[in-house]
Design a protein around this nucleic acid. Structure first.
Lengths: 131, 131
DNA sequence: ATTATTGTATTAAGCACTTAATACACTTTG
DNA sequence: CAAAGTGTATTAAGTGCTTAATACAATAAT
């Protein structure tokens, strides 16, 4: 769990935590059922208020990335989303649409985009495991 | 220019305008050098304050989608971005990374993602022209 | 049981985002 | 040159987001 907050990016800390934990999970550097740092511990490491970490954990749980056992800790959930297949498709399609629009404006072809996705998609599964 | 604001989506009007105009341009339904509706006219159509439209136009200009001739109007810019190739790659890579993470969590494979991009990428160029 | 450790809930303060009101400046048109 | 039409700039109000302070509740460890 090596999280790192960027101070002057304009991105709220709780969102930075969320996206970084998502990446850790998706890349396999955090395993299913592995326990995360307790809210207060992570908060101390990051020099922020425990509530901020709590919010990140809570939203990750709502979206199906984590589950919590009160009094025991917070853990990585099995890889299933909390949303319906239909909702997922809709969300993904919206993201892809926006991506295509931006890529087109940057003179990045669909072919290049696909190449990039292939590369990065392969890398995702290759993260080093950590305790 | 058929823009449509969704009221209760939580997305600010100026952002809705921005993304819709980007799509219109990327899909070719708005042509290079074509004049957009004047700020006040679009504002009246959408029942919002002219400043809100002005903000959308301004940000689109900053990002290289539009150009303005003061006193004359606002127009679709040629298809080049306002950012360096390096900055573009970085932005695209970040978007792709986030997309891959979400897709993985939704049990959408890289192959499916690529298929989706191919389909939607083809559709993008096929928008009907409008006056 | 008791204590320590974990997450949860409530409230409020600060701050930034978003929109609106209004006045200004530049171009085009006649 | 005058008038109408265009984008621009400044300021302020409202609202929601974000974080923090603090107290609560459930579980684990002993």
């Amino acid at each position: 769990m090596n999280l790192h907050l960027t101070q002057h990016s304009g991105v709220p800390p709780y969102l930075q935590i969320i996206s970084q934990i998502k990446q850790l999970i998706a890349s396999g550097r955090l395993n299913v059922d592995q326990e995360l740092l307790p809210i207060r511990v992570l908060a101390e490491k990051l020099l922020i208020n425990p509530n901020t970490v709590a919010r990140a954990y809570r939203e990750l749980e709502t979206a199906g990335w984590l589950y919590t056992k009160r009094g025991a800790g917070t853990f990585v959930a099995a890889g299933t989303t909390a949303f319906s297949a239909e909702t997922c498709r809709k969300q993904i399609r919206e993201r892809v649409c926006a991506l295509l629009v931006e890529a087109a404006h940057m003179n990045i072809s669909v072919a290049e985009l696909i190449k990039l996705i292939r590369e990065m998609g392969n890398d995702l599964g290759k993260g080093d495991k950590e305790s």
